[in-house]
């Protein structure tokens, strides 16, 4: 049981915990947009933590693959979340909002410019 294997286990467990929280969020939150928060970010952050755990477990030998995977995750996760929620708003899915309301709808909705 070396130091790095302990760190690796901790990171993998933390990543799994993050993903679990994301799943809980999808189950618990009220509408499509709030669920998108949970589904996109928690999944990506959990996966990044698991990948860092892999990096520690392999003594840094797989660093290039890990770096590549993290970069791809960091780029695709926000883009997908943005694209899906924007498409939802354009298609007329109303967000369930609190007292602050929906500024995008007040400003005339999403349109091309």
């Amino acid at each position: 049981m070396t130091f790095w294997s302990v760190v690796a286990s901790a990171l993998v467990l933390l990543g799994a915990l993050f993903s679990l929280l994301g799943a809980l969020g999808v189950w618990r939150l009220p509408d499509a947009y709030t669920r998108m928060h949970s589904a996109s970010k928690a999944g990506a952050l959990g996966a990044i933590l698991v990948l860092l755990g892999v990096l520690c477990a392999t003594d840094g030998q797989r660093w290039f693959a890990v770096l590549l995977a993290i970069t791809v995750l960091l780029i695709t996760a926000p883009l997908a979340a943005h694209a899906i929620s924007r498409a939802g708003h354009r298609a007329g899915v109303k967000p369930l909002v609190g007292p602050l309301g929906d500024a995008l709808e007040r400003a005339g909705g999403d349109r091309d410019h």
């Binding site: 996109s40 970010k41 926000p78 943005h82 995008l104 999403d110």
Partner: peptide, 17 residues
Amino acid sequence: ACLLTLTPGTLALSYRP
């Protein structure tokens, strides 16, 4: 917008200049 969307709790929906 990407960094914002990566931060939990905020999500970029649309942009105008």
